[in-house]
Write a protein that binds this DNA or RNA. Structure first.
Lengths: 213, 213
DNA sequence: CAATTTAATGTCAGTCGATGACAGATGACA
DNA sequence: TGTCATCTGTCATCGACTGACATTAAATTG
């Protein structure tokens, strides 16, 4: 990798770190892009060449996590039922995050605290989650061998994403806490659902959809 | 109600209608607040006295629906299990929406189409949903007689909200279509869940939480 | 009804986020 | 070393949003 690439990466990382620190100390709205850029000795115009918006810099880590999660899912063996594959993907991702160095985990925890204490960032984060949800549905539908507009994969993914969001509601000071909360929620879900609920319904096996009362 | 109040309400409605029409024809980003205000013969400054932001005017109807839904929930008899109460609240709200006059339903359908074709508005809409989710959890926890940080009411509400969101993914040209899609999803959920899954777990009735596999 | 209080609106000035255009600087590479 | 592609800073501009102040019009009171 050339000097140019490394320099760009360093600038990008510096902008993320400076932004997270300023956002957490002075507040998101109270911090201007100019201040972030100044902290890295860069013009505000350059900031916008790295990040599409002020929001983007705050959500960049979350966006990376979403991509990681989808990548984990496609590596799961096709023999796993969909919900199991989703759960295992999440466990794998949490494992990867725990292998990060101090600087890495610090950045991630900072971003989490920031997002969940800033309503407008929470909105942006939800947009990312929903965009990823669409990709997850496509992948799960593929695994189940049904068209992507089938309700069942949508239901499975929606349920799983809901659990992921609940996971973030609790304290997020520690990745271990989060993993534990996640397992609690999975246990609750397993207890609530019928065995095999996430397996494709083979036509003719079950009766037709009963009429709504 | 005095003349002053009526005049304000008319201005507000006119701003919403003008905004929705301009957003849908020229696009959300391409429409300026100045254009919306001009359409109603009002200064841009006045627009911001009615709506906190350009986004706010697009989401105002959705925000009202959220409030309506919560209001319906608190009227449900306490004998109903939580998920049933949520479902019935949704049915009640859909019923109310269907009783609106032509102008009313037109506004609502316009807002829906707009939001679901504009990523930044989708994000804002999700923020509203999540804020309401917190209030719903509080109410459901109260009904179940458990503390609001208990995982079970959070799980029940999350599952229900997920269904509501899936409902909006489909075509939204018609309130009837939406109601039908909603019933399909409820049927799928009923088939997937254990009987009594949303009843409070009485300590000692069920065994200890089984270990995660 | 006239006087006074109260609230809504318009105008103006200013900040900040974001983008396009152009010129200068700097790493890549023959 | 010299050329080329890319990165960066400066400048100008737009649009969202806010505070301050003056103006207008509804509400209230004597």
């Amino acid at each position: 990798m050339g000097l140019r690439e490394r320099k760009k990466q360093r600038t990008r990382d510096a902008l993320v770190d400076a932004a997270l620190d300023l956002f957490l100390t002075r507040g998101y709205e109270a911090t201007t892009v100019e201040q972030i850029a100044a902290e890295v000795d860069v013009s505000a115009r350059t900031f916008f060449r790295y990040f599409a918006s002020k929001e983007d810099v705050a959500l960049s880590l979350t966006a990376e996590e979403q991509d990681m999660f989808l990548a984990e899912l496609v590596t799961r063996p096709k023999s796993e039922p969909p919900f199991t594959a989703l759960s295992q993907s999440m466990r794998a991702m949490l494992g990867i995050l725990r292998e990060l160095d101090e600087a890495g985990t610090s950045r991630i925890l900072k971003a989490r605290r920031l997002i969940h204490s800033t309503p407008s960032l929470l909105a942006g984060g939800m947009r990312l989650v929903r965009e990823n949800e669409r990709r997850l549905v496509a992948e799960v539908a593929r695994r189940m061998g049904v068209p992507p507009d089938d309700l069942q994969p949508q239901f499975v993914v929606s349920l799983f994403v809901g659990i992921g969001l609940l996971c973030l509601n609790g304290p997020t000071e520690d990745l271990g806490d989060m993993a534990r909360r996640y397992e609690d929620l999975l246990t609750l879900a397993e207890r609530s659902l019928q065995p095999g609920w996430d397996l494709p319904v083979r036509p003719g096996t079950a009766g037709a959809v009963p009429p709504a009362r």
